[in-house]
Design a protein around this nucleic acid. Structure first.
Length: 104
DNA sequence: CATCTGACGACCG
DNA sequence: GCGGTCGCCAGAT
């Protein structure tokens, strides 16, 4: 499975905004749904400039385990995203991805 | 080839 | 709002 489309979209997330796994999967029409989106992120190649930390749970919750959770929180806050109790305020930071052209 | 696992999410009590 | 189940599916074992 090639996660390229996923990485491409994640790279488009504006600074200071976040997107959920579900919305990500939906926007790209991933077969496996949100879970596959998560799988894609877990396999995110480092050093590619992919802002993986801008992807959170459907309710803005940071779902990954330590030690990455701390890192994600740190990175988000450094972009001006407020993180409280392991979750971001979707009301202000949720980003709506542009309609992708079926790249799967 | 059989199971287990998990960076998910919808449901239900 | 919280915790437990269940459905999903690609990878790992």
């Amino acid at each position: 499975m090639s996660w390229d489309p996923v990485y491409r979209l994640v790279k488009q997330i504006p600074r200071g905004r976040v997107l959920s796994y579900g919305a990500l999967a939906k926007a790209l029409h991933l077969r496996g749904g949100a879970r596959s989106a998560g799988r894609a992120m877990a396999a995110t190649p480092s050093g590619k400039g992919i802002p993986w930390h801008r992807v959170v749970g459907e309710r803005g919750k940071i779902l990954i385990r330590e030690p990455y959770a701390s890192l994600q929180k740190k990175l988000l806050e450094s972009e001006g995203v407020k993180v409280v109790e392991s979750r971001v305020d979707l009301k202000t930071h949720l980003w709506t991805p542009p309609a992708e052209k079926r790249a799967k």
